[in-house]
Simulated scan of single mutants.
Amino acid sequence: MEAAAQKFPAFKLDISPLKEPLGFIKVLQWVFAIFAFATCGGYTGTSMASVKCLNSKEDLISINFSYPFRLNKISYQAPTCKNGSTYETQDLIGDFSSSAEFFVAVGVLTFLYCTAALVLYVGYQRLYQQNKYLPIADFAVTALFTFLWLVSSSAWAQGLTDVKNSTRPTTLIRAISVCQVKNVVCTQGALPSMGRLNASVIFGFMNFILWSGNSWFAFKETSWHKPANPQGVAEQGASVEH
């Protein structure tokens, strides 16, 4: 145990790697990952419509929905316009949790990996430079996250479009059976505010761009780009001159 402790270097704070592209972009990735999963995972919206039966008061239908957007499990009470004030239970349409949860999961994993990578950069820079396998692993993970951000952002962009279509007041009115009856007036409410969800998609594709650009800087740190032993080559050249 003592020998292993001696081989592993102690933590030594050095923020100079953050001034280099590899470290600076990693900080941006850390920040934008938080924005991406926070804007999606913390969302709550409301869809509204009103129903007025003949010779009856107007009923306001207000439906709250939120992440992870399992809309088909959200129920609401709609008037039947029969036998006085009677209501029936109806559900929203669609389950879009898979794309939303995948997107948030990629964001959280990105946050955790960037945290670990930044600790390695600023605390164990010497180990990172001397161990040829760490830069290769960093490059491989960077390439993986580039792919994951592209896939998850594209899937969530389509999922968001479906969420918008399913929660529009006009869609809600079409789903309420009594709204198809003559002499029943159904009025749509305001559109749900989707600004945060639109921002989450933007942050997702910005993360893809950041990880794509960082792939090159991560590759430059690997032994595939750097000479395998530049010091040995220099010594060999010196001996030839003598």
Rank of each mutant, 00 (worst) to 15 (best):
K7W: 09
P9N: 00
K12A: 11
K12F: 06
L13K: 09
D14H: 10
D14L: 00
P17W: 10
K19I: 00
E20M: 11
P21Y: 00
P21V: 02
L22P: 13
I25P: 05
I25S: 11
K26C: 15
K26Y: 13
L28Y: 02
L28K: 01
V31H: 11
F32L: 13
F32A: 04
A33C: 14
I34A: 06
I34E: 03
A36H: 03
C40P: 10
T46Q: 07
S50C: 12
K52G: 04
C53I: 00
L54T: 10
S56Y: 01
K57T: 12
I61K: 06
F65I: 05
S66I: 01
S66W: 03
S66R: 13
F69Q: 08
F69M: 01
F69Y: 12
R70E: 14
R70W: 08
N72H: 08
I74C: 10
Q77N: 12
A78R: 06
P79G: 05
K82D: 10
K82G: 10
K82E: 15
N83Y: 04
G84I: 03
Y87S: 05
E88R: 09
T89W: 01
L92Y: 04
S97R: 08
S98L: 08
S98W: 07
E101W: 03
F103S: 01
A105M: 04
V106S: 10
G107M: 07
G107T: 05
V108E: 08
T110W: 05
A117I: 05
A117H: 01
L120M: 12
Y121G: 00
V122A: 06
Q125P: 11
L127V: 04
Q130F: 11
D138Y: 04
F139R: 05
A143H: 04
A143W: 02
F145I: 01
F147G: 09
F147L: 14
S153A: 11
S153V: 09
A155E: 09
W156V: 04
G159D: 01
T161H: 15
T161G: 15
V163S: 02
K164F: 00
T167G: 06
T167H: 09
A175I: 10
V178D: 02
V181S: 14
V184I: 07
V184S: 00
V185F: 15
C186H: 10
Q188M: 14
Q188E: 15
A190R: 12
L191S: 13
P192V: 05
S193D: 15
S193H: 15
G195V: 03
L197A: 05
L197Q: 08
A199Y: 09
G204N: 01
G204S: 07
G204Y: 06
F205Q: 01
W211T: 08
S212G: 14
W216P: 07
W216M: 08
F217G: 01
F217T: 13
H225E: 12
K226H: 05
P227A: 09
A228G: 15
N229Y: 11
Q236G: 12
V240W: 14
V240N: 13
